[in-house]
Design a protein around this nucleic acid. Structure first.
Length: 408
DNA sequence: TCTGGGGTCCTAGGACCC
DNA sequence: TCTGGGGTCCTAGGACCC
């Protein structure tokens, strides 16, 4: 039986939720991202007057004084996201939560028991999300995930588009190849140089050409675009991470090792806090500095004993720092990635007491975590992070920060 | 898109072995 | 001292996504 895959995509989702919370925002130019200093989401009205994602907030304030600027409210976005997916689950069992505002659902064979056509099922989902949550979404229906993505983007906002195997080519002849899910700038450029500009041009190439010229994932993409169902719906809710990353870009750029290390220390504290929250420990950690020209200077360390204690990981970072740091290069970003995460429960003791030492630190941090939950963030942090916070909050009294210093 | 932050997956090539 | 052929495992880095 031919598959029927639904793809649902929130319209300007963060702003949509803000409008649902406060209906007075409806029809107004609204952006979110105040806390980050750049526009992270924008209403269609804001888009219409020339605002784009990533635009600095100060520019919006200066050039578009009529725009309403809001800080992100991620707790609300997660709540609405869950409610939205619950509505999809009223109809389909197989729902894959792909991102905070997108999901796939397998509707195949549900028309009979529900006594509704596939189109009617999609219409109901859309109507219920509109009426119950006051959110606008767009839906695509197609025989594969990739085609369903194409369909949901075809009419936006508030769209509902069906692509059948027979009509796929007509759609794909109107879609630039770089707009296809999975084809990024590099592959798009490669294809365009060979005169493949539209998704339709791409699927008109034969399989041998695809195999000879592109990597394996693109062969699957090519098949999916031609209507062959390959990318399965994965309904397992995402509870585990395989890596956790924390990065921060700063201005002005710098070469100062002390500054860079304190930024890295802050990255490490944040990453470790997240890992503790999920009871995960990394078997491997990598640090990086990103230079002015966006080149990465990376070093990776295998942990003899997996831990999420920031004291241990910052000590590693300090040891490895000279391997990444070059004199005379300006850096824009520091970052840490905790890799090969495993459940803390599964960690075995080692011969040299590394595990016992890590356990002590982890216990202290668990207690700090619960205090911070009660009394707010940044109650306590490592001395090595101190400078990074001073930098961020320059202009405020550093006395308050000094009071909370914890030397371990 | 002159470039923020957080993820996943794939692959080429080196290390090591027979 | 120089030379095959073939296999596995691992890792760094590329490419892509939202």
């Amino acid at each position: 039986m031919e598959k029927v895959i639904l793809h649902m995509d929130g319209d300007a989702f963060f702003v949509g939720v803000e409008t649902a919370k406060n209906p007075k925002l409806k029809g107004r130019p609204v952006v979110t991202g105040e806390e980050r200093g750049i526009v992270s989401a924008l209403s269609y009205e804001a888009k219409a007057i020339g605002i784009v994602r990533g635009m600095p907030i100060f520019r919006v304030q200066k050039d578009f004084p009529q725009v309403i600027i809001l800080p992100g409210d991620y707790a609300a976005y997660s709540r609405y996201s869950a409610l939205m997916f619950d509505i999809v689950r009223r109809y389909a069992d197989e729902v894959e939560e792909y991102s905070i505002d997108e999901c796939f659902a397998d509707l195949t064979g549900l028309d009979r028991p529900l006594k509704l056509s596939y189109l009617q099922i999609a219409e109901r989902i859309k109507k219920e999300i509109n009426e119950e949550l006051h959110l606008s979404i767009s839906i695509g229906l197609a025989p594969t995930k990739v085609l369903a993505k194409v369909a949901s983007k075809w009419v936006k906002p508030n769209g509902l588009t069906v692509i059948k195997k027979e009509t796929a080519l007509d759609f794909l002849r109107k879609i630039p190849v770089e707009k296809v899910w999975g084809i990024g700038p590099k592959t798009a450029e490669f294809l365009q140089r060979r005169n493949i500009r539209l998704a339709g041009d791409f699927i008109n190439k034969d399989l041998a050409w695809v195999k000879n010229n592109l990597a394996k994932p693109y062969e699957e993409l090519w098949r999916e675009l031609r209507g062959e169902y390959l990318f399965k719906i994965d309904p397992v809710p995402k509870t585990v991470y395989s890596s956790i990353q924390k990065t921060r870009t700063f201005h002005p750029l710098t070469n100062n090792p002390t500054f860079l290390l304190s930024q890295l220390s802050k990255n490490i504290e944040e990453a470790c806090a997240k890992a503790r929250h999920y009871d995960l420990v990394p078997k491997k950690v990598s640090f990086f500095l990103k230079a002015q020209d966006f080149k990465y200077y990376i070093c990776a360390v295998k942990l003899s004993s997996p831990t999420n204690a920031p004291e241990i990981i910052t000590a590693l970072a300090e040891n490895k720092f000279p391997e990444m740091h070059r004199r005379g290069i300006l850096y824009r970003t520091t970052g840490v990635t905790l890799q090969e995460l495993i459940s803390n429960y599964a960690v075995q003791g080692d011969l040299f007491g590394g595990k016992a030492k890590a356990d002590k630190f982890e216990l202290v941090h668990k207690q700090i975590d619960s205090l911070e939950e009660k009394f707010g963030k940044r109650l306590v942090y490592l001395a090595s992070t101190h400078q990074a916070l001073k930098h961020k909050e320059k202009g405020t009294q550093t006395d308050d920060l000094d009071r909370n210093l914890l030397f371990l």
